[in-house]
Simulated assay, not measured.
Amino acid sequence: MKRMLVVAGALLLSVGAGIAQQDVANQTQTTMKATGRALGAVLSPMVKGEKPYDQAAVTTALGQLEETAKKLPTMFPESIKGVKIEGDYSASPKIWEDKAGFAAKIENYAKAVTEAKAKIKDLDSLKANVPAIGKECSACHETFRLKI
């Protein structure tokens, strides 16, 4: 009887850990999608002249990018390595294999966001600073994101 309880308890713990890992992976994906929307649906269309400049929308979008920059160092714990998520992209194992390289990419992204946030006050400054953020996103994605 004791053995059965121990086995059942171990199974429950492993299922619970799996659910927790999936939750972390889903939260990471949600944050990254929100970041993508901030850059791709708000800031980039303004830069391209597809949407009118809107300082309130810019401020909100930059806030999302800044929030992501703060969360990134803890968004990819070892426990979610290999956890499957829905969508077209997944975290590359290189995140965990090259922790120093990943940390450097996060630092570059955070720096670009911080600098842009301090400088963007109008359309011209938006056009001058958003490309640097996009460049840092792309640089990280090239190495640390996989197309599924």
Rank of each mutant, 00 (worst) to 15 (best):
M1S: 14
M1V: 15
M4E: 15
M4C: 05
M4T: 13
L5C: 09
V6T: 14
V7K: 05
G9K: 09
G9I: 11
L11S: 05
L13W: 04
V15N: 07
A17F: 14
I19W: 13
Q21L: 03
Q22F: 11
T31W: 03
G36Q: 10
L39G: 01
L39Q: 05
L39R: 03
L39I: 06
S44L: 15
P45V: 15
V47P: 01
K48T: 10
G49T: 01
G49S: 11
E50K: 14
E50T: 13
E50Q: 15
K51C: 08
P52W: 14
D54G: 06
Q55H: 10
A57D: 02
A57C: 03
A57Q: 09
T59I: 09
G63Y: 08
L65C: 01
E66N: 09
A69S: 13
K70L: 08
K70N: 10
K70E: 05
P73W: 14
M75H: 10
M75P: 05
F76Y: 12
F76N: 02
E78Q: 12
I80W: 04
K81Q: 12
G82P: 05
K84A: 12
I85N: 02
G87H: 03
G87S: 10
Y89W: 13
S90C: 01
S90Q: 04
S90K: 03
S92E: 01
I95P: 01
I95T: 01
G101H: 09
A104R: 08
K105V: 01
N108A: 12
K111Y: 02
K111S: 05
V113L: 01
T114G: 08
E115T: 15
A116M: 05
A118M: 12
A118W: 12
K121P: 01
D122F: 04
L123W: 09
K127Y: 04
K127H: 08
K127L: 05
A128F: 06
A128M: 05
N129E: 09
N129P: 02
N129V: 04
P131W: 12
G134D: 00
G134V: 02
K135A: 14
K135M: 11
S138P: 04
T143Y: 11
R145L: 13
R145W: 04
L146V: 14
L146S: 11
K147N: 08
K147L: 09
